[in-house]
Protein backbone atom coordinates (compact mmCIF):
# COMPACT_ATOMS: atom_id res chain seq x y z
CA UNK A 1 0.00 0.00 0.00
CA UNK A 2 1.16 3.51 -0.61
CA UNK A 3 0.67 5.91 2.23
CA UNK A 4 1.91 9.36 2.88
CA UNK A 5 1.88 8.66 6.61
CA UNK A 6 5.29 8.32 8.18
CA UNK A 7 4.07 6.28 11.13
CA UNK A 8 1.30 3.71 11.06
CA UNK A 9 -1.78 4.91 12.88
CA UNK A 10 -4.03 2.66 14.93
CA UNK A 11 -7.78 2.88 14.60
CA UNK A 12 -10.46 1.34 16.72
CA UNK A 13 -13.01 1.88 19.43
CA UNK A 14 -12.50 3.03 22.99
CA UNK A 15 -15.03 2.02 25.66
CA UNK A 16 -17.87 2.10 23.16
CA UNK A 17 -21.40 1.49 24.39
CA UNK A 18 -24.29 0.96 21.96
CA UNK A 19 -27.87 0.60 23.12
CA UNK A 20 -30.92 -0.29 21.08
CA UNK A 21 -34.04 0.30 23.12
CA UNK A 22 -33.64 -1.79 26.25
CA UNK A 23 -30.90 -3.93 24.76
CA UNK A 24 -27.28 -3.06 25.30
CA UNK A 25 -25.60 -4.32 22.17
CA UNK A 26 -22.10 -3.23 23.21
CA UNK A 27 -20.85 -2.43 26.69
CA UNK A 28 -17.67 -0.35 26.90
CA UNK A 29 -15.90 -2.34 24.21
CA UNK A 30 -12.38 -1.35 23.24
CA UNK A 31 -10.84 -2.63 20.03
CA UNK A 32 -7.56 -1.72 18.42
CA UNK A 33 -7.08 -1.99 14.67
CA UNK A 34 -3.37 -1.93 14.02
CA UNK A 35 -1.90 -1.51 10.53
CA UNK A 36 -0.40 -4.70 9.20
CA UNK A 37 -2.30 -6.84 11.66
CA UNK A 38 -5.52 -8.86 11.63
CA UNK A 39 -7.82 -8.35 14.59
CA UNK A 40 -10.43 -11.08 14.97
CA UNK A 41 -13.73 -10.43 16.71
CA UNK A 42 -15.22 -13.69 17.95
CA UNK A 43 -18.33 -14.60 19.85
CA UNK A 44 -21.62 -16.43 19.48
CA UNK A 45 -24.80 -15.27 17.77
CA UNK A 46 -25.96 -11.94 19.20
CA UNK A 47 -22.62 -11.32 20.91
CA UNK A 48 -22.32 -7.89 19.26
CA UNK A 49 -19.78 -8.65 16.54
CA UNK A 50 -21.67 -7.02 13.69
CA UNK A 51 -22.67 -4.05 15.89
CA UNK A 52 -19.03 -3.48 16.78
CA UNK A 53 -17.94 -3.56 13.13
CA UNK A 54 -20.80 -1.34 12.01
CA UNK A 55 -19.91 1.11 14.77
CA UNK A 56 -16.30 1.11 13.63
CA UNK A 57 -17.29 1.74 10.03
CA UNK A 58 -19.54 4.62 11.08
CA UNK A 59 -22.94 3.02 10.48
CA UNK A 60 -23.93 3.12 14.16
CA UNK A 61 -23.47 6.13 16.37
CA UNK A 62 -22.48 4.87 19.83
CA UNK A 63 -24.15 6.11 22.96
CA UNK A 64 -20.81 6.69 24.62
CA UNK A 65 -17.16 6.06 23.94
CA UNK A 66 -14.93 7.02 21.06
CA UNK A 67 -14.60 5.65 17.55
CA UNK A 68 -11.52 6.31 15.51
CA UNK A 69 -11.57 5.44 11.83
CA UNK A 70 -10.15 6.94 8.67
CA UNK A 71 -12.32 8.76 6.14
CA UNK A 72 -14.57 6.54 4.04
CA UNK A 73 -12.12 6.81 1.13
CA UNK A 74 -9.61 4.92 3.28
CA UNK A 75 -12.06 2.43 4.70
CA UNK A 76 -13.13 -0.87 3.16
CA UNK A 77 -16.17 -2.71 4.44
CA UNK A 78 -17.45 -6.15 3.57
CA UNK A 79 -20.87 -6.72 5.12
CA UNK A 80 -21.97 -10.16 6.19
CA UNK A 81 -23.27 -12.65 3.63
CA UNK A 82 -21.64 -10.96 0.63
CA UNK A 83 -24.41 -8.37 0.74
CA UNK A 84 -21.94 -5.78 -0.48
CA UNK A 85 -22.20 -7.21 -3.98
CA UNK A 86 -24.62 -5.97 -6.64
CA UNK A 87 -26.13 -9.22 -7.83
CA UNK A 88 -27.64 -7.84 -11.03
CA UNK A 89 -24.23 -6.62 -12.18
CA UNK A 90 -21.45 -8.78 -13.57
CA UNK A 91 -18.18 -9.24 -11.71
CA UNK A 92 -16.52 -6.63 -13.93
CA UNK A 93 -19.41 -4.19 -13.58
CA UNK A 94 -19.27 -4.52 -9.79
CA UNK A 95 -15.59 -3.65 -9.89
CA UNK A 96 -16.17 -0.76 -12.31
CA UNK A 97 -18.84 0.71 -10.03
CA UNK A 98 -16.79 0.53 -6.85
CA UNK A 99 -13.71 1.79 -8.71
CA UNK A 100 -15.70 4.79 -9.97
CA UNK A 101 -16.81 5.57 -6.41
CA UNK A 102 -13.15 5.67 -5.40
CA UNK A 103 -12.05 7.52 -8.57
CA UNK A 104 -9.89 4.58 -9.56
CA UNK A 105 -9.32 4.58 -13.32
CA UNK A 106 -6.94 3.69 -16.13
CA UNK A 107 -3.89 1.55 -15.60
CA UNK A 108 -4.19 1.56 -11.83
CA UNK A 109 -7.70 0.09 -12.09
CA UNK A 110 -6.59 -2.47 -14.70
CA UNK A 111 -3.70 -3.50 -12.46
CA UNK A 112 -5.87 -3.84 -9.33
CA UNK A 113 -8.59 -5.68 -11.24
CA UNK A 114 -6.16 -8.24 -12.66
CA UNK A 115 -4.32 -8.63 -9.37
CA UNK A 116 -7.41 -9.13 -7.21
CA UNK A 117 -9.43 -11.27 -9.62
CA UNK A 118 -6.48 -13.59 -10.18
CA UNK A 119 -5.81 -13.88 -6.45
CA UNK A 120 -9.50 -14.59 -5.84
CA UNK A 121 -9.72 -17.07 -8.72
CA UNK A 122 -12.38 -14.99 -10.41
CA UNK A 123 -10.45 -14.07 -13.53
CA UNK A 124 -12.55 -16.41 -15.68
CA UNK A 125 -15.86 -15.23 -14.25
CA UNK A 126 -15.64 -11.54 -15.11
CA UNK A 127 -18.72 -11.64 -17.35
CA UNK A 128 -20.86 -13.62 -14.94
CA UNK A 129 -23.60 -11.95 -12.95
CA UNK A 130 -22.63 -11.70 -9.30
CA UNK A 131 -26.00 -13.26 -8.44
CA UNK A 132 -25.08 -16.32 -10.50
CA UNK A 133 -21.79 -16.94 -8.70
CA UNK A 134 -21.43 -19.62 -6.06
CA UNK A 135 -21.54 -18.48 -2.43
CA UNK A 136 -17.78 -18.68 -2.04
CA UNK A 137 -17.09 -16.83 -5.27
CA UNK A 138 -19.52 -14.11 -4.26
CA UNK A 139 -17.83 -13.74 -0.87
CA UNK A 140 -14.48 -13.44 -2.63
CA UNK A 141 -15.90 -10.82 -4.98
CA UNK A 142 -17.26 -8.90 -1.98
CA UNK A 143 -13.78 -9.03 -0.49
CA UNK A 144 -12.23 -7.76 -3.74
CA UNK A 145 -14.67 -4.85 -3.76
CA UNK A 146 -13.82 -3.97 -0.16
CA UNK A 147 -10.08 -4.04 -0.81
CA UNK A 148 -10.08 -2.59 -4.35
CA UNK A 149 -9.06 0.93 -3.32
CA UNK A 150 -6.38 -0.33 -0.92
CA UNK A 151 -8.03 0.96 2.25
CA UNK A 152 -6.02 1.63 5.38
CA UNK A 153 -8.75 0.08 7.51
CA UNK A 154 -10.43 -3.08 6.23
CA UNK A 155 -13.49 -4.28 8.09
CA UNK A 156 -14.85 -7.73 7.25
CA UNK A 157 -18.05 -9.09 8.77
CA UNK A 158 -17.86 -12.88 8.84
CA UNK A 159 -16.14 -13.10 5.46
CA UNK A 160 -15.86 -16.89 5.53
CA UNK A 161 -19.22 -17.90 6.98
CA UNK A 162 -21.00 -20.35 4.72
CA UNK A 163 -17.99 -20.72 2.47
CA UNK A 164 -16.54 -24.08 1.49
CA UNK A 165 -13.12 -25.03 2.97
CA UNK A 166 -11.22 -24.36 -0.27
CA UNK A 167 -12.72 -20.89 -0.65
CA UNK A 168 -12.00 -20.26 3.03
CA UNK A 169 -8.34 -20.91 2.38
CA UNK A 170 -8.44 -18.53 -0.61
CA UNK A 171 -10.15 -15.88 1.46
CA UNK A 172 -7.61 -16.19 4.24
CA UNK A 173 -4.82 -15.82 1.75
CA UNK A 174 -6.44 -12.60 0.49
CA UNK A 175 -6.90 -11.30 4.03
CA UNK A 176 -3.31 -12.06 5.01
CA UNK A 177 -2.10 -10.38 1.84
CA UNK A 178 -4.12 -7.24 2.65
CA UNK A 179 -2.64 -7.10 6.15
CA UNK A 180 0.85 -7.71 4.77
CA UNK A 181 0.21 -4.75 2.48
CA UNK A 182 -0.21 -2.55 5.55
CA UNK A 183 -3.98 -2.50 6.07
CA UNK A 184 -5.41 -2.71 9.55
CA UNK A 185 -7.82 -5.63 9.19
CA UNK A 186 -10.71 -6.17 11.58
CA UNK A 187 -12.80 -9.25 10.93
CA UNK A 188 -15.53 -11.02 12.79
CA UNK A 189 -15.67 -14.78 12.58
CA UNK A 190 -17.42 -17.74 14.04
CA UNK A 191 -14.53 -20.01 13.02
CA UNK A 192 -12.21 -20.08 15.98
CA UNK A 193 -9.35 -21.67 14.06
CA UNK A 194 -9.34 -18.45 12.03
CA UNK A 195 -9.23 -16.40 15.23
CA UNK A 196 -6.17 -18.33 16.33
CA UNK A 197 -4.37 -17.18 13.19
CA UNK A 198 -5.05 -13.47 13.90
CA UNK A 199 -2.61 -11.08 15.54
CA UNK A 200 -5.13 -9.85 18.07
CA UNK A 201 -8.40 -11.29 19.16
CA UNK A 202 -11.35 -9.92 21.06
CA UNK A 203 -13.95 -12.28 22.54
CA UNK A 204 -17.45 -10.83 22.82
CA UNK A 205 -20.39 -12.22 24.71
CA UNK A 206 -23.70 -10.40 25.09
CA UNK A 207 -22.08 -7.11 24.12
CA UNK A 208 -19.22 -7.41 26.59
CA UNK A 209 -15.55 -7.97 25.77
CA UNK A 210 -14.62 -11.03 27.82
CA UNK A 211 -11.00 -11.11 26.71
CA UNK A 212 -8.72 -9.39 24.28
CA UNK A 213 -5.12 -9.66 23.26
CA UNK A 214 -3.04 -12.02 21.17
CA UNK A 215 -4.57 -15.49 20.74
CA UNK A 216 -1.69 -16.89 22.81
CA UNK A 217 -2.45 -14.48 25.67
CA UNK A 218 -6.13 -15.38 25.57
CA UNK A 219 -5.35 -19.11 25.53
CA UNK A 220 -3.13 -18.78 28.60
CA UNK A 221 -5.78 -16.90 30.57
CA UNK A 222 -8.61 -19.42 30.44
CA UNK A 223 -10.84 -18.86 33.48
CA UNK A 224 -11.44 -21.89 35.78
CA UNK A 225 -10.60 -25.41 34.73
CA UNK A 226 -11.39 -27.31 31.55
CA UNK A 227 -11.26 -31.10 31.61
CA UNK A 228 -12.08 -33.72 29.03
CA UNK A 229 -13.61 -37.17 29.23
CA UNK A 230 -16.20 -39.47 27.72
CA UNK A 231 -18.97 -38.05 29.92
CA UNK A 232 -19.66 -34.72 31.69
CA UNK A 233 -17.82 -34.47 34.96
CA UNK A 234 -20.21 -31.84 36.31
CA UNK A 235 -23.59 -30.26 35.51
CA UNK A 236 -24.55 -30.84 31.84
CA UNK A 237 -24.98 -27.09 31.22
CA UNK A 238 -21.25 -26.69 31.95
CA UNK A 239 -20.27 -29.38 29.43
CA UNK A 240 -19.94 -29.47 25.65
CA UNK A 241 -19.03 -32.05 23.01
CA UNK A 242 -15.81 -31.90 21.03
CA UNK A 243 -15.74 -34.78 18.58
CA UNK A 244 -16.04 -37.99 20.58
CA UNK A 245 -14.96 -36.27 23.77
CA UNK A 246 -16.93 -34.21 26.28
CA UNK A 247 -15.39 -31.12 27.81
CA UNK A 248 -16.40 -29.95 31.29
CA UNK A 249 -15.75 -26.64 32.95
CA UNK A 250 -15.86 -25.39 36.51
CA UNK A 251 -14.71 -22.18 38.16
CA UNK A 252 -11.53 -22.11 40.17
CA UNK A 253 -8.42 -24.27 40.06
CA UNK A 254 -8.32 -27.97 39.23
CA UNK A 255 -9.75 -30.24 41.89
CA UNK A 256 -7.67 -33.10 43.31
CA UNK A 257 -7.34 -35.87 40.76
CA UNK A 258 -8.47 -33.70 37.81
CA UNK A 259 -6.34 -33.46 34.69
CA UNK A 260 -6.95 -30.00 33.19
CA UNK A 261 -6.34 -29.78 29.46
CA UNK A 262 -4.65 -27.06 27.44
CA UNK A 263 -7.70 -25.38 25.97
CA UNK A 264 -7.76 -24.34 22.35
CA UNK A 265 -9.60 -21.22 21.19
CA UNK A 266 -12.98 -22.96 20.99
CA UNK A 267 -12.75 -24.32 24.51
CA UNK A 268 -11.43 -20.98 25.73
CA UNK A 269 -14.30 -18.98 24.24
CA UNK A 270 -16.85 -21.38 25.76
CA UNK A 271 -15.09 -21.25 29.13
CA UNK A 272 -15.05 -17.45 29.01
CA UNK A 273 -18.77 -17.36 28.21
CA UNK A 274 -19.59 -19.84 31.01
CA UNK A 275 -17.50 -17.86 33.50
CA UNK A 276 -19.29 -14.68 32.44
CA UNK A 277 -22.71 -16.30 32.82
CA UNK A 278 -21.77 -17.54 36.25
CA UNK A 279 -20.60 -14.09 37.26
CA UNK A 280 -23.80 -12.47 35.98
CA UNK A 281 -26.02 -14.90 37.85
Amino acid sequence: MTHTDTAPMAWGTNKVTVTFGNTTALREVTLDAIPGQVTAVVGGDGAGKTTLLRTLVGRIRPQSGQVSAPASTDCGFMPTGASGVWQELTVDENIDFVAAAHHLTGRELARRRAELLTAAGLEKATDRLAGALSGGMRQKLAFCLAILHQPRLLILDEPSTGVDPVSRVDLWRLISRAAAGGAAVVMSTTYLDEAERSSTCIVLNRGKALASGSPQTILTHVPGTVTTGTAPSGPPELSWRRGRQTRSWHAGPARPGEQPILADMEDTVIALALADQRQES
Binding site: W11, V16, V18, T19, F20, G21, N22, R54, G58, R59, I60, R61, P62, Q63, S64, G65, Q66, V67, S68, A69, P70, A71, S72, C75
Partner: peptide
Protein backbone atom coordinates in the same frame (compact mmCIF):
# COMPACT_ATOMS: atom_id res chain seq x y z
CA UNK B 1 -27.16 8.19 8.07
CA UNK B 2 -25.63 6.17 10.91
CA UNK B 3 -28.14 4.56 13.24
CA UNK B 4 -28.37 6.53 16.45
CA UNK B 5 -28.95 4.92 19.85
CA UNK B 6 -32.66 4.74 20.47
CA UNK B 7 -32.57 5.18 24.23
CA UNK B 8 -29.96 7.82 24.94
CA UNK B 9 -29.83 8.04 28.68
CA UNK B 10 -26.48 9.79 28.76
CA UNK B 11 -25.12 12.28 26.28
CA UNK B 12 -23.01 10.70 23.57
CA UNK B 13 -19.37 11.56 23.50
CA UNK B 14 -18.67 9.64 20.36
CA UNK B 15 -15.87 11.03 18.26
CA UNK B 16 -14.98 9.93 14.83
CA UNK B 17 -11.97 10.79 12.78
CA UNK B 18 -14.04 11.03 9.62
Amino acid sequence: APAAPKAARTPATARSAR
